[in-house]
């Protein structure tokens, strides 16, 4: 998993880290049980404030993506959301709605949008497979 920061993206730096780690977890770049880089080495490597990395890890922990084992570090958890299926669906619907709105403004039709979603699902599937081979 290689992380990088783009100060011009308009997304707060700690959220960029959260999104990239979630992405790595979804695409096989990081597997359950694998450890995340330590806060200090990662902060030094990215040359960002130590507190920024700590905040990103705290956010991931509160989302249930990682767990901290005192004295050992942070590890990716098995995917197991504490939320009910309905609550999880509702969260995902918000994200899907955003994509639908964006597609409308970019004049991308329903069939094309669905095809793109399928294509992206396949891309993640391939990455995951490659990571597990």
């Amino acid at each position: 998993m290689i992380l990088h920061i783009d100060f011009k993206s308009g997304t707060p730096v700690y959220l960029q880290l959260v999104e990239q780690i979630r992405h790595a977890a979804a695409s096989g770049g990081l597997r359950p049980g694998e450890s995340l880089p330590g806060i200090r080495p990662l902060a030094e490597e990215l040359r960002v404030n130590r507190n920024t990395v700590a905040k990103a890890y705290a956010e991931l922990e509160s989302q249930g993506v990682i767990e901290t084992i005192p004295g050992k570090g942070c590890f990716l958890r098995e995917v197991s959301s504490p939320l009910t299926k309905t609550a999880r669906n509702d969260l995902l619907i918000q994200e899907i709605d955003r994509a639908i709105v964006a597609a409308h403004h970019l004049q991308i039709g329903d069939a094309d949008l669905l095809a793109l979603v399928k294509k992206r699902l396949d891309a993640f599937e391939r990455k995951n497979k490659a990571a597990n081979d």
């Binding site: 080495p41 902060a43 030094e44």
Partner: peptide, 17 residues
């Protein structure tokens, strides 16, 4: 310059954040 900044983040900031 790079080492300087890494030292401020690492050796200094990590002590007692």
């Amino acid at each position: 310059r790079r080492e300087f900044i890494e030292t401020v983040i690492g050796a200094y900031q990590s002590g007692d954040p």
